[in-house]
Amino acid sequence: MTTLTEAPEASAARETPARRRRPVDRLPYLLLLPCLVIIAVLLLWPLGQVVTMSFFKLDNVRQLRGDREWPWVGLANYTEILGDPFFHTVLRNTVLFALANVLLTMVLGTLVGLLLNRLSARMATFVGTCVMLAWATPALTGAIVWKWIFDDTSGLVTWLFNALPDGLSTALFGRADWTGYGWFNSPLLFFAILTLVVVWHSFPFIAVSVLAGLKSVPSELHEAARVDGAGPWKVFWKVTFPLLRPVFGILIVLSTIWDFKVFTQQFALAGGTQDRTTYMLSIYSYASAFSPPPKYGLGAAIAVILTLILLVVTGFYVRMVLRQEES
């Protein structure tokens, strides 16, 4: 009696997709686990604490140490903040400052990146190293240097204005002696100087990132565009920019987040939290939480609002990127 054996091909064809499915490789998840734990401990847990504090009335250090109870107030801190006209002024200052800094940082960083791409290798290395020194300088150190530059007695800017002819200085600015002039006393001048400091510290990262993106663009595309009669601006706008749009998108989001959170430079230039006319959200949160009388819950609510604004900006960019990939 003969027994019919099933061909291997037929047996494999009748295998269900579930049987042919490859086993899940858990090794990548295990390798990511230590990083996820560190992020949870250093980021998510403090963020959760801030969110929790925003729903309580905390005005004493003993409450933070756990020696006293935390009175629950619900959304009262948020209601107080959103109903305060001063908060709307601070929010306006923050938005306008961030928009101006993002625009200036992106424009200057892109121009420097294009310049580095056109220079020879040796010169590009030299210029790039000099540019990166500004980004490598700690924010506090850079702010202290710029504060000395605008010092009202021995600062470089004061010396330069005093070096102008008296007649010219008077005709242009209405004064001849600049010794003792408070560069940081006017809100408009303060924000102008703060913008100068932040852009000086931020544009090198943009320049190097744009340079890295330019190195990935095939030179044949630029040469073909020039052969067709396109000028430098048209080459950039029609060839370079579309190819580097994802890079520019990431840089804009990062710059927006950084400029919304500016604190160190403002605190150093203003000498503390005394000048409320120059407040932005980050320093407003700090001043509300730690200036006497302390209101830790109120400061935490402002910090949560700032975080939500940044999450909206980031979510908008992620949605835009996903739409571009789908199309």
Results as ranks from 00 to 15, higher is better:
202 S>C: 13
213 G>V: 02
213 G>N: 07
188 L>T: 15
202 S>H: 12
210 V>W: 01
193 I>L: 04
195 T>H: 10
214 L>G: 01
202 S>K: 08
189 L>N: 15
203 F>N: 02
209 S>K: 02
191 F>L: 10
204 P>H: 05
200 W>T: 08
218 P>L: 10
198 V>Y: 09
204 P>M: 08
209 S>A: 13
195 T>W: 09
194 L>W: 05
202 S>Q: 13
209 S>V: 09
191 F>V: 09
217 V>E: 04
213 G>Y: 01
214 L>W: 01
204 P>L: 08
196 L>C: 09
206 I>D: 04
200 W>V: 03
218 P>I: 11
208 V>I: 15
200 W>L: 08
212 A>F: 00
194 L>A: 09
219 S>F: 14
189 L>E: 15
194 L>F: 07
200 W>M: 06
193 I>N: 00
217 V>M: 08
211 L>N: 00
214 L>Y: 00
201 H>S: 15
211 L>K: 01
200 W>F: 09
199 V>G: 01
194 L>I: 08
190 F>N: 01
188 L>C: 14
207 A>E: 04
189 L>R: 15
208 V>C: 07
193 I>M: 00
194 L>H: 08
220 E>Y: 13
193 I>T: 01
196 L>S: 09
197 V>P: 06
194 L>Q: 05
215 K>Q: 14
205 F>G: 06
214 L>S: 02
191 F>T: 05
220 E>C: 12
208 V>Q: 08
218 P>W: 10
207 A>V: 05
205 F>H: 04
214 L>E: 04
207 A>I: 07
211 L>V: 02
204 P>Q: 06
188 L>Q: 15
201 H>I: 14
216 S>G: 12
211 L>G: 00
215 K>F: 11
192 A>Y: 11
202 S>D: 14
196 L>G: 11
203 F>I: 05
